[in-house]
């Protein structure tokens, strides 16, 4: 496969993984918690490196998973001790992120990670960093990692679909019929963490947030069915990734930044033009109501 195809495949995998998870975050009103986690995984990655002295995927996933859960847990703890939830999120993510940045610069000589890379990702290098087993080149390792995470996510969502659905829609009812709502919460947060860390190499920690939130929010304005929302969101993720790549080629700009911008444009268009929930159709409906 060509260089460009690999990049588009990587971006699309990010779009699909993030797009699907993002829908649940939006419906559960946890978008900002996801934002927080996408920042704090940086600490997880640095710690994983300092412990294992390797930048291999599995350590990163474990480290990020642990810190992601820790983030969700700390926010929960602060919230239950009386801090309003948005402030709790703000305090936790900035602290852990700042700690991550400090560790990174303190061990700058040892860690082959630079902060700009962590933030903005470097999808252009993805195709050269390939996975080889027994001398055979199996393609970019990022694609393998993202693919694995996507499959894990899909399996988990498939297995717990109805539990996730009911605990998102009506947590009280879910608790009443015996569904462990807290377990579902932390399950989703772990999925966010591993998705973030797998995507982070390519689009960077901050832009994962765009992929997590924007496609889901767009899909939310387009459909009234959960399953359709998941699919549309994934498709918009892919379109943003591919569109972003071409836009970046044309104007010679950051690929990840351009993916986020394209996603934003798609959202803006949907926000105005969506047949049912768009600004325009609402205005028209109001107008026709007045003229009647």
């Amino acid at each position: 496969m060509s260089y460009g195809t690999w990049i588009m495949l990587t971006g699309s995998l990010v779009g699909v993984s993030c797009g699907i998870i993002g829908c649940f975050l939006i419906l559960r009103k946890m978008a900002m918690l996801a934002d927080a986690i996408s920042h704090t995984v940086l600490l997880g990655i640095v710690l994983a490196y300092l412990v294992s002295h390797s930048l291999e995927g599995i350590y990163m996933l474990v480290g990020a998973g642990i810190i992601g859960l820790l983030t969700a847990f700390l926010v929960q703890v602060l919230h239950s001790s009386g801090v309003q939830s948005d402030a709790a999120i703000g305090v936790v993510f900035t602290s852990l992120f700042a700690f991550g940045v400090i560790l990174l610069s303190a061990f700058a000589g040892k860690v082959h990670l630079d902060v700009n890379h962590a933030l903005m990702g470097e999808i252009t290098f993805i195709p050269w960093n390939t996975l080889t087993i027994g001398g055979m080149d199996l393609g970019p390792s990022a694609v393998w990692m993202l693919g694995t995470v996507l499959i894990i996510n899909l399996i988990l969502i498939f297995l717990f679909y109805k539990e996730i659905k009911i605990s998102s829609f009506d947590p009280a009812m879910a608790t009443a019929i015996g569904i462990p709502v807290m377990f579902i919460h932390y399950l989703l947060m772990s999925m966010v963490s591993i998705t973030t860390v797998a995507s982070f190499d390519s689009v960077g920690a901050i832009l994962v947030v765009a992929m997590l939130i924007v496609p889901g929010a767009t899909a939310y304005l387009l459909t009234d069915k959960l399953l359709a929302m998941l699919i549309i969101s994934a498709v918009i993720g892919v379109i943003s990734a591919i569109g972003g790549y071409y836009a970046a080629l044309v104007w010679n700009i950051s690929i990840s930044g351009s993916m986020a911008s394209i996603a934003g444009l798609i959202f803006a268009a949907t926000f105005i033009l969506s047949p049912r929930y768009g600004l325009l159709s609402k205005l028209l409906a109001r107008k026709s109501l007045i003229t009647e």
Binding site: I206, G257, A263
Partner: peptide, 8 residues
């Protein structure tokens, strides 16, 4: 995230 992406 979109503003930040555009900033990048």
């Amino acid at each position: 995230s979109v503003f930040f992406g555009f900033g990048i």
